[in-house]
Every structure is written in structure tokens, then in C-alpha cells.
Computed example of a mutant assay.
Amino acid sequence: MITERWVRGVVGGAVAAGMLAGAAGCETPPAPKAAPGPTEAPRKTPTPHRSPTPPNPNPTPTAPASPAAPEPAPEPCPEGGVRLVEGSGDAVMGLRLEGYRLVNCGTDEYVLEGYPQVRLLDKQDQLLEVAIGHGSAPITSEVPAVDAPPERVTLAPGQTASMALLWRDRITDVTVPPVEGWVLEVTPKPGAPRLGLRLTRPVDLGNTGQLGVGPWKR
């Protein structure tokens, strides 16, 4: 009896174990994960086709750069070492007072004393007949620029002296053509070379024919 029960127990356990194993073997396995699909490459926006620009058959030439203008050469110093320069002027009721400068452009001192010798030429460089005197009389009353007493003036290189001319632009006789001086010639001192200066403003004497000269002043 005991043996039969043991056999049944063993057989029953084996059957139960087999059923458990069968049940375990019949269990459905999990579905495999889906493989990732192919990744699409980003789409490129098509570039519009551009036709190449044809070359210009008549290109505009590029102007070459203009070279810098050379600086004007310094004016040479005249013979004698001084230069005559036109100065400023003043006109009141037909009375003219004009200043002129003498510049020492040489390398030595230049000494002046007294009055310059003056004469006038017209536009054709013809000498004019003019009564030239020292001071303002008889043209007008006293004018300091032309009536000052003469003095000795010593000019170092680069220094300047001045002198003044006085006249009146007046027509007293319509039958006499007016006189205009366009070139001033000055001898600064006795024995010195004569200097010529073409004027931008004429010495317009009318038909008075008189010119007053002042002394050299520093």
C-alpha cells in the first residue's frame, strides 16, 4: 500500500512537472521591435540657373590718375637784390593814394635814403609825360604818407620798405585824352638797377599830368 502511494505520488509529481513545463513552453514570446526605417536626406532647394554675364564689348577706359601739379619755382631775385611789389590803395573823391613795397630778396643788407626815382609807361610800354614831384603839393593838402621827411632805412635780407604815390583822377579838358600808367619803373637809389612792375590797377591821372612821390619808409 505504501509503495503504491509513493509511486502515485512520483507519477503525479512528474505529470504535474510536465504540465508546468508544457505550459511554460507554450507561452507566446514578445514581438520583436521594428527595425528603424531609412532616414530621408534633407531636400535641397534647387538653385535657379543664372546665365553668365557677357563681357562688355566696349569697356569704359579708366582715366589714369592725374599727377600732382608741380609747385611753381620761386621767382628769382632781380639784379640788385630787391623786388618791387604792388601794395594796397585808397581812393577818395578822385584822389588816389597807392603804396608799393620794396623787398630785400638778396643776401646782404640794402640801404635806402631819400626818394625813389619814378616813371610811368602805358600799356604799350611807352613812356608817359608826367610831372613828378616830392610830396603832395600841388595835388592836394598835406598827406603824411608822402609828406614825411626822408630817413635812412636799412633792410636786412627779407625785410621790406615802402613808398607811396599820390595823384588825382580828374578830367579838366575833354579834348585831352586821359593818361593811364600801367607799368611803374622805380630806381630805388642812385646807381641801383631800375625795377619794372606791371600794375593790376592803373595810375589813372586823367589829364592832370601830376604825380606826387613819398620817401622810403620802413
Results as ranks from 00 to 15, higher is better:
M1L: 04
T3Y: 14
T3W: 10
E4Y: 10
R5D: 13
V10M: 12
V11P: 08
V11F: 13
G12H: 14
A16M: 10
A17K: 08
G18Y: 06
M19A: 11
L20Y: 07
A31W: 00
A31F: 00
A34F: 02
A35V: 04
P36A: 13
P38R: 00
P42E: 03
P46L: 07
R50D: 10
S51R: 12
T53W: 07
T53F: 07
P57A: 05
N58G: 03
N58V: 12
T60N: 04
P61K: 05
A63V: 03
P70A: 12
A73S: 14
P74R: 15
P74V: 15
P78F: 01
E79L: 10
G80C: 09
V82E: 09
R83F: 05
R83Q: 14
L84I: 10
A91R: 12
V92Q: 13
L95S: 09
E98I: 01
G99F: 04
Y100M: 09
V103T: 12
C105I: 03
G106D: 08
E109H: 11
E109L: 11
Y110N: 06
V111D: 09
L112C: 01
E113I: 00
E113P: 00
E113K: 07
G114T: 13
G114D: 07
G114L: 11
V118T: 06
L120D: 00
K123V: 09
Q124K: 11
L127C: 09
E129T: 15
V130W: 07
A131I: 11
I139S: 07
A145I: 07
A145D: 14
A145C: 09
A148S: 10
A148W: 04
A148M: 08
P149A: 11
R152A: 06
V153W: 13
T154L: 08
G158A: 13
G158W: 13
A161H: 03
S162N: 14
A164D: 07
L165F: 13
L166N: 02
L166I: 04
L166G: 05
W167Y: 15
R170E: 12
I171F: 03
I171M: 06
T172P: 04
D173E: 05
T175F: 13
V176R: 15
V179S: 11
W182M: 02
T187Y: 07
T187F: 10
T187M: 06
G191F: 06
A192E: 11
L195M: 02
L195Y: 04
L199H: 01
Q210S: 07
L211N: 03
R218Y: 12
